[in-house]
């Protein structure tokens, strides 16, 4: 029987991925493939931790994490949107740069404790509630508002959107910054609410898992929630097995989230390929936009 504590653990493990994947889904719906999620998350993790430590307020930490994630994502935004660089390579650069920068500036924070997170209703902290609330909100904005329609239009066919007079690059820049801010919040959650301290490279691939979950989700916010919870479930199951002393080495058990991500990715891709369900990917995803007129 799954108890409330297990469910809580699951939601907590899913939250960083949920934030990051929702943000990336927004960016990808606008046609931008940003592989820098890991770099933005780790930046948010350090900035968030530093701010929370300096002010003693976790809320300030989350705000700082969002700001730092958005700020660093704009490097990617300017390069890919205004200098038309390759999105795959630029995203990789963002991840490497973020990991390096945080390793450099994170030194003074090693071994420092985070301020404690205040609890929320039902013992669930408000960051988890915020993540849950963002799912319907993102869905609503994307599917039921004019701005959402423009964003999706830009993502499906940037030439058509440009011809209609929409500012493709500006829309994408905003989507990238929102994605960066949400990845930053996800990273801040890791350092402030789950690990409670700063260590180099602490997001440990969560950003990449978030990228895979966007594909799994078919670019829909509700799908992202399902994917994040699935991931949270695997993470908790692995911890439970470790605690129960199963006769499998810890190192092998800790592969579970990464292997599960591959399995999920493969199943979803195969379904799209063989069931004749064309990919739900936005039409202009990853393609640079250069206005000829």
């Amino acid at each position: 029987m799954i108890g409330w504590t297990t469910l809580l653990l699951l939601m907590s493990a899913a939250t960083p991925i949920l934030f990051a994947a929702l943000g990336e889904a927004i960016a990808e719906r606008s046609g931008v493939l940003n592989l820098g999620v890991e770099g933005m998350m780790i930046t948010g993790a350090l900035a968030g931790f530093a701010a929370a430590h300096a002010t003693g307020s976790p809320l300030a930490g989350f705000v700082a994490g969002a700001a730092a994630g958005a700020a660093i994502s704009l490097i990617f935004g300017v390069l890919t949107q205004y200098l038309l660089t390759n999105q795959v390579a630029t995203g990789l650069a963002l991840t490497m740069f973020g990991l390096g920068l945080t390793a450099m500036f994170g030194r003074p924070y090693e071994g420092v404790k985070a301020p404690s997170m205040p609890g929320g209703p039902l013992g669930v902290n408000w960051a988890i509630w915020l993540g849950l609330a963002l799912v319907p909100l993102t869905w609503f904005v994307l599917n039921r508002t004019r701005r959402g329609l423009i964003l999706r239009g830009v993502g499906e066919n940037h030439d058509a959107a440009h011809a209609l007079g929409y500012k493709v690059r500006l829309v994408r820049l905003v989507a990238i910054a929102i994605g960066g801010a949400m990845a930053g919040i996800g990273g801040a959650y890791v350092s402030i609410a789950t690990v409670l301290q700063w260590t180099e490279g602490m997001t440990a691939g969560a950003g990449w898992i978030a990228l895979a979950i966007v594909v799994f989700a078919g670019w829909s916010p509700w799908g992202v929630l399902a994917g994040a919870w699935l991931f949270g479930g695997v993470a908790v199951l692995q911890l439970r097995l470790q605690a129960a002393g199963v006769a499998v080495p810890v190192q092998l058990l800790s592969m579970a989230p990464y292997l599960a991500t591959i399995v999920v990715l493969v199943i979803i891709s195969a379904r799209q390929k063989y069931r004749g369900r064309g990919s739900a990917a936005p039409g202009s995803l990853g393609r640079p936009f250069h206005a000829t007129r």
């Binding site: 691939g205 895979a212 592969m255 591959i262 990715l265 493969v266 891709s269 195969a270 390929k273």
Partner: peptide, 17 residues
């Protein structure tokens, strides 16, 4: 080749493995 899964994400996940 079999399923169309992104080689970017799979190869990267396999680093952690």
């Amino acid at each position: 080749n079999w399923t169309g899964a992104s080689e970017i994400l799979v190869s990267l996940m396999l680093v952690y493995v």
